[in-house]
Design a protein around this nucleic acid. Sequence first.
DNA 1: ATCCTGACTGTTC
DNA 2: AGAACAGCCAGGA
Length: 104
Amino acid sequence: MGLGCHERVYQVVERIPRGRVATYGQIAAMLGDPRGARQVGYALAALGRGRPRPQVPWHRVVNAQGRANLGQEQRMRLETEGVVFDVAGRADLGQYGWDGVDAR
DNA sequence: ATCCTGACTGTTC
DNA sequence: AGAACAGCCAGGA
């Protein structure tokens, strides 16, 4: 993953359908780097560090446990799209998890 | 080139 | 179920 790895991450995230979520590790795997989950998070972190990319639905990216650790805004946005969180604050990946295909 | 940091993850207490 | 640990790798200083 050399230069431009951020762009590749953004392109995958942009493909996540509305109302679904994907995990960092899942996205990394799609990019061909099963161990690049952290880099995916790093790439998305760059968004809020001075990289305007309003088109990228960063809120649809959650951790491997279906938890939205980025504050209330992420959770609110997801709930607006129909994603339901359980009492533990986790989304059911089996139901809302994106399998990489636009149509389920 | 080297060191430090971090929107992660799986394993193990 | 929750917390600590250790790999992981790309950027920035």
